[in-house]
Write a protein that binds this DNA or RNA. Sequence first.
DNA 1: GTCTATAATTTGATAGAC
DNA 2: GTCTATCAAATTATAGAC
Lengths: 205, 205
Amino acid sequence: MKQKPTESVILDAAMRVFTRKGFAATRTEEIAKEAGMNRALLHYYYRDKQTIFNLIFERRFSEFFKGLFIIFETDSPLFEKIEKMVDHEISTISQHPDLPRFILMEVAQHPERLIEYGQKLGLNPRIFLEQFEGQVQAEVRAGRIRPIEGRQLVINIMSLCMYPFVAKPIIKTMMQLDESKYFEMQERRKKEVYEFIIHAIKVSV
Amino acid sequence: MKQKPTESVILDAAMRVFTRKGFAATRTEEIAKEAGMNRALLHYYYRDKQTIFNLIFERRFSEFFKGLFIIFETDSPLFEKIEKMVDHEISTISQHPDLPRFILMEVAQHPERLIEYGQKLGLNPRIFLEQFEGQVQAEVRAGRIRPIEGRQLVINIMSLCMYPFVAKPIIKTMMQLDESKYFEMQERRKKEVYEFIIHAIKVSV
DNA sequence: GTCTATAATTTGATAGAC
DNA sequence: GTCTATCAAATTATAGAC
């Protein structure tokens, strides 16, 4: 019956609270409570609030971007790549529904972190984006999809996958969905979003 | 040369700061500074920080939802309604790019406000949603659009319009856009998003 | 009405006992 | 390693002069 080391108990608790509330609204007291310990112990293991936050942010930043960039990197055909992106995003984010809001909130406050942590992770959006744009242009020239800017397509794909999570509280309330109904709706979206995109770009037959 | 009453100078300043930072990260000092006055004066006109925030939230909440619901209410044909929604959302939000993030952040923290302020504004999402779903089903049955759930379509439309604003810092950085290039991209989106949606739902010819 | 000065409160960080 | 007690700093709110 080995128990988790206190360091990770703290980090796990901090992850939940920071993700829920963001940096500014988080009280170290709440992290300690969530971790089932005293506030002082947080400072014993980690210098201060900011230090804990940075560790959490790096972890969550990686979760948010890493998988996506791996799919960007593969050289699958366009439609297959889109299918993978949609399925991956909706599936993984479903397990961490408030991850996008957390990242977007904190990046909006400190855009410089996007560059800093992006480099730390070795992400190079420019290369991936250019590659994807080239792929889209090739399909357009081949007459398989209608004319569309590659970057507009990327934005559309990300929007369709991410926004329903970012707007989760609004959607749940407006559509009167409980947690499980909301989850089912997201499950259906995997197919729905993929088909929506394919119909949107492929030339009529 | 009549000058603005101090009350509205305060509210305008508070609107900018709260929208930028959210409630928790906002310092009343910054509001006062932005309004060009002393902190104490804020308390002379308004009881406290929370009071000012509530006024701002109500105002911005209305901006965010009111126009959208008006379009939902009209009885235009489906495609025309979609065109109006897309154009309205992208146009008006372009002038207040951080409005969606503000609403989403604060509603995520306090979902009960959605109901409270929604009622205050007299919004009834259920009716609008049912009406829209009926309209979509009619089009499906008439064979003019492919089978799609009305609410999935609503989510898709909102996603395509809103997310690019919510993710503005990420998009600007990744695509290396300055403020004016970002604005141009959004201008092109009015047409792009509308056509994307129409192609996505209409049956092939 | 607007300011300066100050009080009160909240929060984060440290010291020291066990 | 974990806690209690305490301090320090930041932030909000109020009192009172002008």
